[in-house]
Design a protein around this nucleic acid. Structure first.
Lengths: 142, 142
DNA sequence: CTAAATAGTACTTATTCAGTACCAATTTAA
DNA sequence: TTAAATTGGTACTGAATAAGTACTATTTAG
């Protein structure tokens, strides 16, 4: 089964747990709210920060807080932050990644498929995922 | 990086190598054509057969042959055959797969995103991937 | 100064992936 | 009828990746 890693799933839960308030939330607090282990939450928070999705404040009463609203964070943003993105094949994003390039001609076609999937992932935001009532309508252009 | 497994990539190469003729091609022959190892090709062929994408004939001058045309085999068919499909999260296809169902509400939204990706994978055929000149135009409906 | 919290690194364990090996069953062709 | 070619199935091994854990340094508020 092709799927996102557990860590990425957890990342959505962590983002979910972050309120829009400017008060930083500690890794410990987020762990207790989500039911995940603190080190796991901590690892996720660092990756999300590195990707610019949230900021942190050190020291006592420090913690993490979102710098974007949930409807400004796409599914793709989170996937890129945690596992470096999504691409059906290596060659579709880097032609030199395959030593069979000479005998294999999937690359061009795969790129197009990847683009479609990428568009889908970019069109859906975290807030879309959380709000079950909102209809997700996607406009995919080839 | 979320991506298909190597075996799935190889599966496309193997299908590519199969001519539309009714003459069966042996695993050995397909290995030499694709540059892959025979046992690897053999494993792929068995999975593809199990999924109904091709048939086999035993004995001397036996081998494997396609039962569908390449434009009738979708990207999704191959992914399902080799690795059981694609679903961003377990919960999106099986609610019982997650013990956090009580506290996590991604499921409904994820299902929608998965549906979009599934549509994309079903809309593209093997022959689309191989023919670089053909424009892939997708009609995705929410 | 002290407590609380992030930052960073390194390590361990579990799971999956990729590849290999072997033998049984079947069919064709000589 | 016999031998060679080929699929069918299972089991195994090593490598790569993922997941979780542990420890220490750094920063900040009070």
């Amino acid at each position: 089964m092709i799927k996102m890693s557990k860590l990425t799933e957890y990342a959505f839960m962590v983002i979910m747990a972050l309120k829009k308030s400017d008060l930083p939330a500690s890794a410990d607090y987020l762990a207790s709210v989500t039911g995940l282990e603190t080190p796991t939450v901590s690892k996720i928070l660092k990756l999300l920060k590195k990707a610019g999705l949230l900021e942190s404040k050190r020291g006592s009463s420090g913690g993490y807080f979102l710098v974007k609203r949930k409807h400004e964070i796409s599914l793709n943003d989170v996937i890129v932050a945690i596992e470096g993105g999504m691409s059906l094949t290596e060659c579709a994003e880097d032609d030199s990644a395959c030593h069979l390039t000479q005998s294999c001609y999937m690359s061009a076609g795969m790129k197009k498929v990847n683009q479609v999937i990428l568009n889908a992932l970019q069109s859906v935001t975290v807030s879309d995922i959380l709000d079950e009532k909102k209809k997700i309508t996607l406009q995919i252009k080839p």
